[in-house]
Design a binder for these strands. Structure first.
Length: 465
RNA sequence: GGUCCGUUCGUCUAGUCAGGUUAGGACGUCAGGUUUUCAUCCUGGUAACAGGGGUUCGAAUCCCCUACGGACUACCA
């Protein structure tokens, strides 16, 4: 890069709700930028018109707002490198694709998707892998096999075409990854990837490289699923004769049980959220739960995600965002995927909950009480919350621990009644009730002393259970 | 199938780069203690270096092979 400035970006596609793996990727980018005094950018990669989902972009923005992750530049915020939405940068990409054609690094291809899938299935049938590469492109319809005139004629006639990268024949691409170290791949196993689609839009590969370059991105920190396309990207930077950013590929978030990438289905199946915020699918109307709605605190949520794949090397486990920023380092990110553990997630939330003030918790609890038709004095709610917060992981669990403060019990624990309720219990309860009513200065200390004295007096001993 | 990446308790992980630890912590779980309940808290237990070969006095750590897992293999990102 032409400066030492650290600039990183998070570049989601607005194709649905943001997965927590995406949130973690963004978080690591954010921490890296803040730690190094750099800038964090939000770029929307909406080059696939067919997968656009209304509301997804807004969802992404709202998610980060809830988490407390702030961008320095990007959609809705602006900045000196805008626009930050690829659909608004559309005009720019074709020139770069053409530049590659002129340099002999790319070519026009006229194969239709149908033709290609036909060829692929033919290869499949004989158990061979079709690779659109230096060998195969000689047998297909493109500006390499057609004459210059034929090519121009086809284009002039409006024949749909794509622009493909001309993958070198037999070269070893050397790459470096900040997390994995050296990686090398031979180009002979790589495809002539499409850079520019017949609908006039660039593919991810082209748009991503062009924008990262134009936006002066210094470090590309993204999910491991991108590692296989790193050679292409590196070759693309070389083809443009651009200086490359540093790359870091983050390990994946895995299912809690079994193996594989964490998906929406796992959340539904195991009963925990996979998305930061609740999401209602605009098409099907299906609702997916969110961390926010399930009662997770944003700071707990961030802490959980941060520890899935990274640790500071000390025994500290609870962090504020500022502490994470201070201690984060990309070198300490793990190589292997992490299984998400809902039980530990709940524990983290508990850790944050008990540090919240009674007031804050009461404010969150009050709407739940109102929902149940209970109007209680805020000071009273606070006292109750203070009494029971140690025993819950989430605000909504407060009700089960404290309902008797707000209403008369509707039923008794049958087992306890059967076991404990004796002939004289009624009399004893009334007796202790009178004792409690008789306490003038009602504090926990006074109550304890008085009731213990009453126990002595009544000569009641604990019945071992 | 091919390419690439990975592999320490059930889970998150420390330790690997600079070879020598009773392989540490946390979650979970189990037991005990405190609290005349429960929860908190405290103490203790449980449980791992994927396998096999090397190199070395000595390997979780370095090298090789195997196995297993994952990602990618679209005119999706």
């Amino acid at each position: 890069m032409n400066s030492n400035e650290i600039r990183v970006r998070f570049a989601p596609s607005p194709t649905g709700p943001l997965h927590i793996g995406g949130v973690r990727t963004a978080l690591y980018n954010y921490l890296f930028a803040k730690k190094n005094g750099g800038k964090f950018i939000l770029r929307i990669e909406d080059t696939d018109q067919t997968r656009f989902v209304p509301g997804a972009e807004q969802y992404i923005i709202e998610s980060f707002k809830w988490c407390g992750i702030e961008f320095d530049e990007g959609v809705t915020i602006g900045g000196n490198y805008g626009p930050y939405k690829q659909s608004e940068r559309k005009a720019l990409y074709k020139d770069y694709a053409l530049q590659l054609i002129n340099n002999g690094k790319a070519y026009y291809a006229f194969d239709t998707p149908e033709e290609l899938s036909q060829v692929r299935s033919e290869y499949e049938a004989i158990k061979k892998t079709f690779v659109y590469n230096s060998v195969e492109r000689k047998n297909l319809r493109n500006s390499l096999t057609l004459s210059e005139n034929e090519t121009q004629e086809l284009i002039a006639k409006g024949t749909p075409y794509v622009i493909r990268f001309m993958m070198p024949e037999n070269e070893v691409v050397l790459m470096n990854d900040l997390i994995r170290g050296k990686v090398e791949v031979n180009t002979s196993v790589l495809d002539d990837k499409i850079l520019f689609k017949s609908d006039g839009m660039p593919t991810y590969h082209l748009a991503n490289i062009v924008d990262d370059h134009l936006m002066n991105i210094s470090h590309v920190i993204r999910g491991e699923e991108w590692l296989p396309s790193l050679p292409l990207h590196v070759l693309l930077y070389d083809a443009f004769k651009w200086e490359k950013p540093e790359f870091a590929h983050l390990p994946l978030l895995l299912k809690p049980d079994g193996n594989g990438k964490l998906s929406k289905r796992d959340g539904d199946r195991l009963g925990f959220p996979v998305f930061p915020l609740e999401w209602k699918d605009p098409k099907t109307g299906d609702v997916s739960m969110g961390y926010r709605e399930q009662g997770y605190f944003p700071d707990a949520f961030i802490n959980i995600l941060a520890m899935l794949g990274w640790n500071p090397g000390t025994e500290q486990e609870i962090f504020t965002l500022d502490e994470l920023t201070e201690q984060f380092s990309i070198e300490r990110v793990n190589k292997s995927g992490a299984k998400f553990d809902p039980a530990k997630a709940a524990w983290y939330n508990h850790q944050f909950l008990i540090t919240k003030s009674d007031k804050e918790l009461a404010d969150k609890f009050e709407p739940l009480l109102i929902e149940k038709g209970i109007m209680a004095d805020p000071d009273f709610i606070q006292k109750v919350v203070g009494l029971v917060k140690e025993r819950v992981n989430f605000v909504h669990e407060l009700w089960n621990q404290s309902d008797f403060f707000f209403r008369r019990p509707e039923e008794y624990d049958q087992k306890a009644v059967k076991k404990r309720w004796k002939a004289d219990s009624h009399e004893q309860i009334n007796s202790v009730k009178r004792v409690i009513e008789g306490i003038n200065d009602f504090t926990s200390e006074n109550a304890e002393v008085t009731i213990k004295a009453w126990i002595e007096e009544q000569d009641l001993v604990l019945e071992k259970s």
